[in-house]
Amino acid sequence: MNAFVFYVVAALVLLGGLGVVLFRHPVYAALSLVGSMIAIAVLFLGLDADLVAIVQIVVYASAITVLFLFVIMLLGVDRREERDPGHVVQRIGALVLGAALAVGLGSMALRNWAVGTAPDTPLDDPSGGNIEAVARVLFTDYLWAFQVVSVMLVIAVVGTVVLARRSRQIIEQRQRQEAAA
């Protein structure tokens, strides 16, 4: 990947991340998250991960963020955090822990890490490029994991419906309140 492009995109990734943490307004934070995700997709393209980059944009930058925005719009913006900014000690502690984490991860990244020998599954399949290569691994070596993850998705969908449904108790409570009023 071109060094200039890398530094610009990496800066966008990190600025987007900082925006999520620093913006007071959740909608701005969500939009900042979109920017960070798209920049990460560009980094994926530079790492020969074509399929992952596209899926990153479709799933992360679109679907998940739209879900966030929907919930923000549905609930309204909670301003209680601004009124009650919390303990200073907590924040300083978080920053100290964050600095320690950054130093730890950075030293791990720069230390001479050792990697074993890769199995014979190159990023670019001779017959059809990156998408075929990932698909072959996904549907052979990870077939069992793929099935389990499908079951987990079904459970998550059912759980979401159960959680988001208005329970009978609350509806009856509301009706009683309205009748009394």
């Binding site: 966030f68 955090e81 907590q90 502690g93 822990l97 984490l101 990244a109």
Partner: peptide
């Protein structure tokens, strides 16, 4: 280079999780 960017992004997320108290932003 990529590992450094990933490490910094992870740190930003972790600090944000500790600092912010709006649950939606904690999820982000």
């Amino acid at each position: 280079h990529y590992l450094i960017v990933a490490g910094l992004l992870f740190t930003i997320g972790a600090v944000g999780l500790l600092v912010r108290r709006n649950t939606l932003i904690m999820f982000m």
